[in-house]
């Protein structure tokens, strides 16, 4: 279980997180929604230690993320970045097998390559993609390679940062289905941040809405439409009128 308690983060006078409280149960898929610039990525990066919170605690399975041994802590996570964040200078297979070629999870090079090709197949890419450079791939293919990298070491917890941003609706559907299948198949705990409501309905067990630096609403995805929260209601229906200012 991942627990965030009173997490705050400011950048100068910009108070991005004002006290986030959130629980993500083991083996469930939590999707965090919210407008652009509401701190969704900062919340996610705070859990991984990429951003240090100003206040509050983050616990993963009862252990404080701030004091955990970094390598062992991070070995439990996989992450799909918004833009893929693939390493330009390395071929696709090396990107996917990156974690398997160093540290505690290190395998022989050939074995790591085989695992990488298997994971590429899992996300619907052919083996001949393995030796190409990321720049030679389309946006959708790069997302899939990023997804293959995220699951390569079979992590217990997977984060997805805006997994469908910049993709056409069909490719978005493919990525959403893949994420759902992989999370169910691996039994992983998933945390996704998005403002794509199609993704929310496809991926989520539970939904939390982040607004003005706090969790405005959270609950099962099935309850989202009947929640009666005016902020959530405005967001999921994409209305310009409501308590959330359209101009921010």
């Amino acid at each position: 279980m991942i627990t965030l308690s009173g997490v705050k983060k400011s950048f100068g006078n910009n108070h991005v997180l004002r006290g986030v409280d959130l629980e993500i149960a083991r083996g469930t898929s939590m999707v965090i929604i919210g407008g652009s610039g509401t701190g969704k990525s900062i919340a996610l990066k705070s859990i991984l230690g990429l951003v240090t919170p100003d206040a509050g605690t983050i616990m993963v399975d009862g252990k404080d993320a701030a004091t955990a041994e970094r390598d062992a802590f991070l070995a439990r996570f996989g992450m799909l970045f918004q833009g893929g964040a693939l390493f330009d200078s390395l071929p696709v297979w090396h990107n996917v097998a990156f974690r398997l070629m160093r540290g505690a999870l290190q395998r022989p090079k050939e074995e790591a390559r085989e695992i990488a090709i298997e994971k590429l197949r899992r996300v619907g890419l052919k083996a001949d993609v393995a030796d190409r450079l990321p720049a030679e791939l389309s946006g959708g293919m790069q997302k899939r390679v990023g997804l293959a990298r995220a699951i390569a070491a079979e992590p217990e917890i997977i984060f997805f940062d805006e997994p469908t941003t910049g993709l056409d609706p069909i490719m978005s559907g493919v990525i959403n289905d893949l994420i759902r299948e992989i999370v169910v198949e691996m039994g992983a705990t998933a945390m996704t941040i998005t403002h794509d409501m199609t993704s929310v309905r496809a991926i989520a067990d539970n939904v939390a809405m982040l607004h003005d630096g706090v969790i405005q609403w959270s609950g099962p995805v099935a309850d989202m439409d009947q929640a009666g929260d005016p902020y959530l209601d405005q967001f999921i229906h994409g209305r310009a009128d409501g308590p959330i200012e359209a101009v921010r």
Binding site: K45, L48, L74
Partner: peptide, 17 residues
């Protein structure tokens, strides 16, 4: 700098590097 802007540095950290 390009690696930083495209989150490749963050990716390195999450991959325990």
């Amino acid at each position: 700098a390009t690696m930083k802007v495209t989150e490749q540095i963050d990716a390195l950290v999450t991959l325990s590097t």
